[in-house]
Design a protein around this nucleic acid. Sequence first.
DNA 1: ACAGTGACTACACACGTGTGTAGCGTCTTG
DNA 2: CAAGACGCTACACACGTGTGTAGTCACTGT
Lengths: 212, 212
Amino acid sequence: MNASGPDPEDLTARARIRDAAMRHFAEQGFERATIRGIAETAGVSSGLVRHHFGSKQGLREACDAHLAKMIRRLNDEVRSGHALDKANPVATANAAMGPYQRYLARALVEGSAETVFDQMVELSEEWLAEADEKRSDTPDVDRKARATVGTAMALAVAVLHKHVSRGLGVDLNTPEGDLLLARTLIDIYSHPMLSVEEAAEVRAALDNLSPG
Amino acid sequence: MNASGPDPEDLTARARIRDAAMRHFAEQGFERATIRGIAETAGVSSGLVRHHFGSKQGLREACDAHLAKMIRRLNDEVRSGHALDKANPVATANAAMGPYQRYLARALVEGSAETVFDQMVELSEEWLAEADEKRSDTPDVDRKARATVGTAMALAVAVLHKHVSRGLGVDLNTPEGDLLLARTLIDIYSHPMLSVEEAAEVRAALDNLSPG
DNA sequence: ACAGTGACTACACACGTGTGTAGCGTCTTG
DNA sequence: CAAGACGCTACACACGTGTGTAGTCACTGT
């Protein structure tokens, strides 16, 4: 279930630097994180960072690439049917991301990690394709549009981690927090916020606003 | 419907600086934004920024305070019944935030704006209180927990603005993008992602995982 | 044994940036 | 009319940080 378990060809200083960078970038953001700080955490000199990654931007791209690799690995696990539950795979993936979750959140917000997001949208799209067959009505928007917004919503908790933890009264990183979040998500995902009548009403209002 | 319409006591240089700062912070982030850049946009010297706000951090806090003020104003509008639709008020508020949306997203991600988030959770909680009466079953989590996660999810689109726009194929700032988003949200909010059976199933799996 | 390659360090430079200080013009107030 | 307050500018300083350069050490292949 866990996507980690260190790469072969890891343990090297290069890998240690990358891991340290992911932690620093995640916790402090790209700008605020310093090469010297990362080097110290990794237990190497600052020059070595440059030696391996060329520049700070290069280091960032390496981190993004590593994240994408991890996501891809997780994708495969989910697809090959080892997934724990058959519910929304995005939520599953999100929960299983573990140590990379925070970096993912940062990367998404700071612009990079576009590939990762798109990857998750695709996953969500496939899941929607199955779910759509159980639907009685026909959706009036693209499947991709729904997958995109749904993915964004699924990622919201990770991105707004701090605020959600505060609101829940428990740190999401603790088992209790994780459990509470799961229960909450199940409740939300299994209860529509709008009845079909309300939905129709709002939709009609929308059509009146913008004719065409 | 629009929350803007400049404050009385605005038009002053202080207000121009604050507005410029909100734009810069929103577009480049707090760290990357520079006092000199903000001053230039506002058409003043960099020293004046310091004169009015003391420090960069002070400027940030002023921006947060202004945002909170705008949100409060919007709150009142929604509460006093002038709201366009009776659907999820968070979604409405989010849509009506207009020019402050991007700053809100940044502030949330970068840690400040805690008050604003909590404010929105409260709003959502009140809305949930009404919605809960229509529910047949009894939720197994706190109302506040549901409000918190729901708020985070509602904010996801604003926070991940760039990625959602890319996925939708339209910039969310355009009328077309806004309309498509609204339609998508209506569809998502009116269709549960989990059936009650699936929900029960997942919930049971959860209970098995962590006894207690 | 020897050159070559790559991991790694120490040190210095250039630059952007937040902040501090001194000063100028103008407007209000007693 | 004098005097302080306030909005505002220009300039200089200190510091952190990314980056560049030179050099050391260990290992490998011929």
